[in-house]
Amino acid sequence: MSAGEKSVSISTAGVVARPESVVPARAPAVKQRKLPDLRRWLSPIGLVLLWQAASSTGVLPPDKLASPATVFRSAYELVVDGQLVDAFLVSLSRVAVGFVIGAVVGGALGLVSGLSRWGERLLDPPVQMLRTLPHLGLIPLFILWFGIGEEPKLALVAAGVAFPLYLNLHAGIRQTDPALLEAARVLGYTRLDRVVHVVLPSAVPQTLVGLRIALGTAWLSLIVGEQINADAGIGYLINNAREFLRTDVVVVGLLVYALLGLSTDALVRALERRVLRWRAR
């Protein structure tokens, strides 16, 4: 579940994704929220039951994969004794700090190269070249530059965030409808007015797409980064568990990663609904 979702983020990390139609045709006045189709839950629940059955009958030995019941119990114990919460907070703060650094860098570069012709000439070529490097492949260099403490982990997250944000912000600004800019000019908008009321708002949908990709990449970068000599965080929890063949704890860690990824994604989608509420309803 987590692996599948994250690997999608890798392949799109350097890609400018399209926002789902910037100005959609007029939608029906009331969008009906459909109830989830419960039948879609049949196979996932069936798989978990199958997994439990395989564990109970000894087909699946616990040193390969713990049973769902054991995973659930370990999760409960880890929460109660505080280990999971501590690890969670450490990992969360790594992502948060790395994300802020990456967002500031990617956002600033995207703004400069989007808003100024010279900025684009000077900044875009090197950024486009660098983004073809798989940023996870930079780990050896980051270890040499930053050591094996917190810094390479933050740098990895920041690099994963900066590129997709830059690309989508830049593309979003460049896609501004020239007809709207013309109208703004003849209606006496100042240059600042045009940037604030025309260019930047029209770049928002694309930037939010970039934000979602960036957050996906941020979690992926964290997971990889926490394999480097972590002494705290969920990566540490998982690596430690591996030493003792605690597959139940490994699975708990993976589930937490997955939940974190899902919840930040939901956060961005909520932000989208709020910020893009001008779209036809």
Partner: peptide, 9 residues
């Protein structure tokens, strides 16, 4: 075309 800014009321 009216060329209104869709994101402004």
């Amino acid at each position: 075309q009216p060329r209104l800014l869709p994101w402004r009321r």
